[in-house]
């Protein structure tokens, strides 16, 4: 079973997704696939907090910042994967070298292909993204293209997944399918 989770930032999506992944995996193998590349102290602190949050939950950790389907090579098909997050994965795929270079326009397509491979190649997958589409601001071209690309990935995953959940203040709103029990 595949689950797509989105919603506003900082409202407990990772913790919620972990619980879902544990539930789906039953007693089976489960992996937390970390896509963010930590760049500064603030990032490292966030990673530390996430690691301690999932302590004792039985997750193996795979760090896969690009080419997301390769996480299956490490964990195998008979496992549950939590991909956290689509947002960071896209950023990494947009800048395969470093951030001073031009963003790669093929990044979204590559993300969609890789993520669908994950969804179709394992027992269960849980995907976490961020809903960044409802504010009143005129963004620069780069930010706008990032938003457009992320939305195209979100929509592809929402179409693929059995269940789509919007998280609001840590509470789930089921947009498609049923909540996994």
């Amino acid at each position: 079973m595949n689950v797509f989770i989105s919603g506003g930032c900082k409202n407990g999506k990772t913790g919620f997704a972990q619980d879902i992944a544990v539930r789906l995996s039953g007693g089976g193998k489960r992996f937390y696939v970390a896509t963010m590349i930590p760049y500064d102290g603030e990032d490292r602190e966030r990673v530390r907090r996430h690691i301690s949050d999932r302590e004792g939950m039985g997750f193996g950790t795979l760090e896969t910042a690009r080419d997301i389907a390769t996480c299956l090579d490490s964990g195998g098909g008979d496992a549950t994967y939590l991909i956290d997050s689509v947002t960071a994965l896209l950023l990494n795929e947009m800048f395969p070298g470093n951030y001073s270079e031009q963003a790669d326009p093929g990044a979204a397509t590559r993300c969609i292909e890789g993520l669908l491979k994950v969804a179709r190649g394992c027992r269960n997958a849980v995907f976490v993204s961020d809903y960044i589409y409802s504010d009143a601001e005129r963004y620069d071209d780069f930010t706008e293209s990032y938003r457009r690309m992320l939305a195209s990935i979100d929509r592809a995953l929402a179409m693929e997944c059995d269940t789509v959940i919007e998280l609001c203040a840590g509470l789930p709103i089921c947009r498609k399918g049923v909540m996994p029990i």
């Binding site: 506003g8 589409y133 409802s134 504010d135 009143a136 601001e137 005129r138």
Partner: peptide, 21 residues
């Protein structure tokens, strides 16, 4: 487009836009 869920925009024009919309 729903443009109502962000922080109150800093710019007066964006604020007026959000309110009118």
């Amino acid at each position: 487009r729903d443009i109502f869920c962000g922080v109150v925009p800093m710019g007066a024009e964006m604020r007026a836009w959000r309110e009118a919309t």
